[in-house]
């Protein structure tokens, strides 16, 4: 009972704010509603017994990545016109693609979860999992982990280089 209630609560929160992310005109509002969606998803992670990911989602996604978004939105507060006309010119093509994706999703849902060949009942042995996720990360997924950290380093250096204001050539004197 309680489990169902929390699921519907978080699911409704996630879907409503996701709709608002897409429909709202102001980019700051979009960011705020995206944060709400991410937090609701974090709640669902917790319900799925993934407490480490719950924390990672909040610290990294909401506390790190989304802060960057909010930051950039505040720094580049231009394009008043964008708030007035929000949909782009390719809307008919886009509609077609969206309908195709929706058809795919409906087809997958119609097949039902039996088609996935999932085990009927989830095992209860998946908690508490911080330690086992860590072990998994540093044993079986050692190489991907290292590659991911190099990727982050490269991205960081790239962002710093891009963000650096180039000096105009004349002002060097």
């Amino acid at each position: 009972m309680v489990e169902q209630f929390t699921f519907y609560f978080f699911a409704a929160l996630a879907v409503i704010s996701a709709v608002l992310v897409v429909t709202v005109r102001n980019a700051v509002y979009s960011a705020v509603f995206l944060i709400t969606t991410l937090l609701a998803t974090a709640g669902i992670f917790l319900q799925l017994r993934a407490e480490f990911l719950f924390v990672v989602q909040i610290i990294l996604y909401v506390g790190g990545i989304m802060v960057l978004f909010v930051f950039v939105v505040m720094l580049v507060d231009l394009d008043v016109a964008l708030r007035q006309v929000q949909f782009n010119r390719q809307k008919w093509v886009a509609l077609l693609v969206v309908l195709a994706v929706a058809g795919q999703l409906v087809f997958a849902l119609a097949l039902g979860s039996e088609a996935l060949g999932l085990p009927a009942a989830a095992p209860e042995s998946l908690e508490p999992n911080t330690e086992s996720v860590g072990l998994r990360l540093f044993e079986s997924y050692m190489l991907p982990f290292e590659i991911a950290s190099i990727l982050l380093l490269v991205a960081m250096i790239g962002a710093v280089l891009l963000g650096k204001r180039q000096k105009p050539p004349r002002s060097e004197a």
Binding site: I35, V55, I58, I59, V62, G63, G64, V67, V70
Partner: peptide, 8 residues
């Protein structure tokens, strides 16, 4: 996590 959210 709570501290991280405090930025907002």
């Amino acid at each position: 996590a709570i501290t991280a959210l405090g930025v907002y």
